[in-house]
């Protein structure tokens, strides 16, 4: 549900919605402050849209995290934003 929600929220605010993918990733070696293992959602967008989803001073990224954390009921949910050209 979270993955799908995030995908929808991001697709609605970018110019290239078809390039948006979200996938969950369980991270190891996480800061124990956050409870050791935490879930990370990795959002990939078109390079042209990266600025849009992050926003000025990270405002949009923060807004997305706020909504997703509220829906997940977890405060250790991480959201990473990368552009589609990376890690390929």
């Amino acid at each position: 549900m979270l993955t799908e929600t995030l995908e929808h929220l991001v697709r609605g605010i970018v110019d290239h919605p078809d390039d948006v993918t979200v996938r969950p990733r369980v991270q190891r070696n996480r800061n124990p402050r956050f409870g050791g293992r935490g879930e990370t959602l990795e959002v990939r967008v078109n390079p042209d849209d990266l600025g849009r989803v992050i926003g000025r001073a990270g405002r949009t990224a923060t807004a997305l995290r706020t909504v997703l954390q509220a829906l997940s009921g977890k405060d250790n949910l991480r959201i990473d934003f990368v552009d589609v050209d990376r890690h390929r």
Binding site: G12, I13, T60, A63, L64, V67, A70
Partner: peptide, 17 residues
Amino acid sequence: GEVLEALQELTRLAVFT
């Protein structure tokens, strides 16, 4: 109202888009 504010911001962006 912090989630509400976040959603308002995203919704405004969706309109802008």
